[in-house]
């Protein structure tokens, strides 16, 4: 048994008095795509955000349990900036900064001390290529990023996340605001990125989960009901509730 890339042990999470996660245990393997599915409000985003400590920004959020990245406790033994460099995040809504495409991509590397223009140029080009938006952006790198379409913006967001050379990429419903073609592009991109990155993706789209993920976790009311190979979850789930959910009988 190899050490999991990310591991969550016995995690409870409270927003004030409200318990959003209950006794979560989860292992995420390297270079796999793990999908989180479940009805709205069941805690998918909450768990995803605790994986790179974005919940620290939420006032009144208390977390217990152990979170490790390559065996190192991310809440105790790791600098938060290092954690977030290694575990990148793509949000539900494209959130490019109101600056040029180039500056958006370069923001992360600059944050981590890369100043040389040649090096930044190189990073911008390779990550935009990786995220399959180079052709659409190469002639307008210096133009505002907010002039791009939603699908393009989301792919630029992915490029921006890749620019700090993360090991894990967390994606929270990255295609929920996109048209089918952009969605397919992002899915293909995720499958491509899997070769080098560990990916965790939240999705409401069952087909998307089956198309791209290796493992799937089904959430309900703050708990993980079932976690298994995607194939097993969708063809032969052990829990009755999982079956009900994937066949669309509730949620």
């Amino acid at each position: 048994m190899t050490q999991p890339k990310l591991q969550v042990k016995n995690c409870d999470l409270f927003y004030g008095d409200f318990q959003a996660l209950k006794n979560i245990d989860l292992e995420i393997q390297e270079k796999e795509i793990t999908a989180f599915i479940g009805p709205s409000g069941c805690g998918k985003s909450t768990l995803l955000k605790s994986l790179n400590r974005m919940n620290d920004l939420v006032e009144g959020c208390k977390i217990t349990g152990e979170f490790t990245l390559d065996g190192v406790n991310i809440y105790k033994d790791m600098e938060i900036t290092e954690l977030r460099k290694r575990v990148g995040m793509v949000f539900q809504k494209p959130n490019l900064f109101p600056m040029s495409i180039y500056d958006n991509i370069a923001y992360g590397p600059r944050t981590h001390g890369i100043k040389k223009k040649a090096e930044l140029d190189e990073i911008v080009e390779t990550t935009l290529k990786q995220a399959c938006v180079w052709d659409e952006t190469k002639d307008r790198l210096k133009k505002s990023a907010l002039g791009m379409s939603g699908g393009q913006q989301q792919r630029i967001c992915i490029a921006r996340a890749l620019a700090v050379k993360p090991e894990v990429l967390l994606m929270d419903e990255p295609t929920s605001a996109l048209d089918p073609i952009s969605t397919i592009k992002i899915e293909e991109l995720a499958s491509e990125l899997k070769k080098n990155y560990t990916i965790v993706i939240v999705t409401h789209n069952m087909q998307q989960a089956t198309r791209i993920s290796d493992k799937t976790a089904f959430f309900l009311h703050g708990e993980i009901v079932e976690f298994d190979d995607t194939h097993t979850i969708f063809s032969n789930p052990k829990e009755h509730k999982t079956l009900e959910y994937i066949t669309g009988r509730f949620g």
């Binding site: 974005m54 920004l57 460099k85 990148g88 949000f91 959130n95 900064f97 109101p98 992360g108 944050t111």
Partner: peptide, 22 residues
């Protein structure tokens, strides 16, 4: 928009850089 702040923190930027640059 808070999403800009999230984007910046998510890339590993600190508070000071987020405030001044974003």
């Amino acid at each position: 928009d808070d999403s800009f702040r999230e984007g910046s923190y998510g890339l590993g930027a600190g508070k000071l850089r987020t405030i001044f640059v974003i």
